[in-house]
Amino acid sequence: AEDTGVRVELAEEDHGRKSSIALRLWVEDPKKLKGKPKDNGAIEFTFDLEKETPDDVAQEMIESGFFHESDVKIVAKSIRDRVALIQWRRERIRPLTQ
C-alpha cells in the first residue's frame, strides 16, 4: 500500500469471524497531510467490514475534528488499504476458520 503518512493497524487479534473489528489510526508523517491534524495520538475505533465504508469513518473523523476536511481522501485511503489487507487475509485463512 502507498505510504500516505497515516498508519492504520488492527487494534486486536483478527480471527476472521467477527464482522466488526477494532482499528487504530495515527499520523506517522504530518508533512504528507494538507491540514494540521488536531491530535498526535492514536485513534482507536471499531469498523464493520460488512456494513461500513472507510469513507464513512474518514468523514466522521473530520466531523469530530481529528483531521482537516482536505485530508478526508488520505484518511479514507489509509483505512481502505488496511481493510483490503484484512479481507484478503481472511479469504486466505477462511478454510481454516470453517
Binding site: A42, I43, F45, V57, F66
Partner: peptide, 27 residues
C-alpha cells in the same frame, strides 16, 4: 490515564491514546 474519548453524532466512539513509542517513525 491519558485516554480521551470522542463520540461522533452517528454513534461511533473514537478513543485517543498516545502512540506507542515503538510505533513512532524515526524523524
Amino acid at each position: 490515564n491519558s485516554l480521551t474519548q470522542v463520540v461522533h453524532s452517528a454513534g461511533r466512539r473514537f478513543i485517543v491514546s498516545p502512540v506507542p513509542e515503538s510505533r513512532l517513525r524515526e524523524p
